[in-house]
Design a binder for these strands. Sequence first.
DNA 1: CTGAAAGCGCTAACAT
DNA 2: ATGTTAGCGCTTTCAG
Lengths: 334, 334
Amino acid sequence: MTSTDVAAHVGVSQATVARAFSSPEKVAPATRKRVEAAAAELGYVPNAIARSLKSQRTNIIAAVVPSVGEYWQSVLTAFSKQLADRRQQLLLFSFSDPAQLEDVLTSLAQYRVDGVILASASIDAGRLARVGSQQLPLVAFNQPAASGLVPSVSVDNDLGMRRLAAHVVENGARRVAYIGGVAATSTDQTRYRGAAQALAQAGIACPYTESGGWAYEHGYGAARELVELGELPDAIMVAGDELAFGVIDALEDRGVSVPTEVMVTGFDGLPQASWAGYDLTTLTQPVELLVEQAIALLLGPSEPEPADIVVAGELRLGRTTKSSSIFESRKDHG
Amino acid sequence: MTSTDVAAHVGVSQATVARAFSSPEKVAPATRKRVEAAAAELGYVPNAIARSLKSQRTNIIAAVVPSVGEYWQSVLTAFSKQLADRRQQLLLFSFSDPAQLEDVLTSLAQYRVDGVILASASIDAGRLARVGSQQLPLVAFNQPAASGLVPSVSVDNDLGMRRLAAHVVENGARRVAYIGGVAATSTDQTRYRGAAQALAQAGIACPYTESGGWAYEHGYGAARELVELGELPDAIMVAGDELAFGVIDALEDRGVSVPTEVMVTGFDGLPQASWAGYDLTTLTQPVELLVEQAIALLLGPSEPEPADIVVAGELRLGRTTKSSSIFESRKDHG
DNA sequence: CTGAAAGCGCTAACAT
DNA sequence: ATGTTAGCGCTTTCAG
């Protein structure tokens, strides 16, 4: 079914049918009705592919997202929703291994999408710069390393970790351990730096342990090792919520109670952090807002130099740090 | 950058450049090298949009998926991965409200995708039939109601619930309650029927409570009401894992211990079900396998009549039902 | 093996 | 307000 078929059926030119759909105001109401009726009858729908070829706009935004991780899934959902509101579609490119990225970016280039959201901590600066040098509108999502190279939107990792650190210190923590995700990523580095610096100001050290990933298992494993080494700190600051869930479960499996013996903080503000089972103290990322900004950067007029938007998150106080009284009584006795 | 530009640069015809990319074997090795070199230098990548216009294949599969729910996110990830392996892209259409479905299906039609995955419990049979009558290859994912109307792939809800029911009965449950999701959906109905029938065979009733959704909060709310009504059963069978997490947390928040006082079962086998914090007894859906079958149905030769594939899940025994001893001792005393 | 030429279905001047 | 016409970048006969 093409516009030509409909045109023949109605007895107008193909161009009129096309206009009836792409700019209805340019066609007489009566003609438009007849065209619409015929289209409905014949089951005609304009061909977006053909339209794109001519107009050079696809109304498709590509999202390059890691295929795993609770956090990315929530981000994806937000993008998909907000893009739908703007009549854009989301073409999904997920990858599990940074090595696949090359392929992904190649097949992406073929689709002449209107813009790309690059959401992954594990893209190195070199590649980023190369992608950024293309024509294609691009925005890096939550990748501190992208700052300056390409337009980017991130949560304020530094501020967020400082606030979490301040909170555990207020709650009496004197010895703090930090469990990171993947040390090579800029997100991990930025978060750790924020925590370490804030704690240093309170005269507290913050030894870093790399868990090697961002998933539950990684957190679980890292915390188990910490327990086995003995010498548990007052608080464990964890680089991400999913990791933190693993940390909490590992601790409690080994009889270490949270927060009575050890406080735990996360980062991200996943829905599950609010679930009663964990009720995690964390830094909630304003995902909707971040996504909104990213889309604005992508679809809006391109700035002369790459904009870097940093949005503050919100401290969520859960029961994994509610232990001021415990520490105060400890101090009384110590 | 077009094939014509590259052709001019190399000194061959545009057709040769196009062939060098779409069917390299039809072009002399020497020419191909020169074309490839020029393309790399000029940054040329074939335009998939233009290709699709001519070839009538987009290599894009659309997925229509609810925008919320842990389960759908895991399904989406599986699709995205497996489609990438087959060099297909995933165009995502998410919707939060069944009312939006109409719009979604319309914009979907414009993109002339090669196939559609319809994954949502809340599409009524009428609409399904209408969509199915189009040209477009289609597969319904985990929608028992679709069976017979359009090709479909689902987990064996009935068998799964029967096995869970058998398990709780073996573990000594004599009074069982069922917490459903959305009663109007075929998934909910099929699961409940399986549980109710299996329990009936053991002479056990299975009163149904609708929680009104599939999210954590719905499970939490439904369980809270159950507790407030008093009269707790030996086991609560829940229609989905995410609901079950809410149920467990609601019970424990009110001092009802799981599984000592009440056993809980889920359905889906989300990653979180294996997390130590919940360690839920559930029916694990073989998501990878389901997705594989769905893709095969979509991309393979179309059958004369709609195929309905039903795949059995796997029983996962967690600690939310490990309580045989408790019940046995109760029986001793009762 | 390579080139010439005709479209795929639509948009956007331009003309009427 | 509508029709005519020329492409968008590619694939694909058909010749050579």
